[in-house]
């Protein structure tokens, strides 16, 4: 059975892009455009991985990330941050989260993504292989 990937991004073009990439690569993508909608899906039927944007209206992707990691039921779901906030492929997580006890996200992809690296990353995280 193909793995379920939850895409959380407020930009329609970006969700369409990621959705297509994931479908082509044999995953089952589920698209939501904000954090409350994502939370509902996660509570109802947790995905195998979450592809998460940060800057979104209503609530930021980092709020969702903190909720996930603070909840024993969901903390093992790997998260790939997909954002334009990084620089040269690196993302300084703790400059956004003032809590050093919080684990860093499992993956980070800088926009615009490299499709092959994105898929490789997802496959590694889903199969439990650490980067």
């Amino acid at each position: 059975m193909s793995k379920k990937i939850l895409i959380v991004d407020d930009e329609a073009d970006i969700t369409t892009y990621l959705e297509t990439v994931l479908k082509v690569n044999g995953f089952t993508p589920v698209v939501v455009n904000d954090v409350p909608a994502a939370q509902k899906i996660i509570d109802k039927s947790p995905p195998d991985l979450i592809s998460l944007d940060i800057m979104m209206p209503k609530e930021s992707g980092l709020t969702l990330y903190q909720n996930l990691k603070n909840n024993p039921k969901t903390k093992k779901i790997p998260v790939i941050i997909v954002s334009g906030l990084g620089q040269e492929g690196k993302f300084d997580f703790y400059s956004f989260i003032n809590d050093e006890s919080m684990a860093e996200p499992e993956g980070f992809m800088e926009k615009p993504i490299d499709v092959d690296a994105y898929i490789k990353n997802i496959n590694m995280l889903i199969s439990g292989v650490k980067k």
Partner: peptide, 12 residues
Amino acid sequence: KNILMGLEGGKY
């Protein structure tokens, strides 16, 4: 970067 992502997406 966001725009480029959209362009990359369209191209893909």
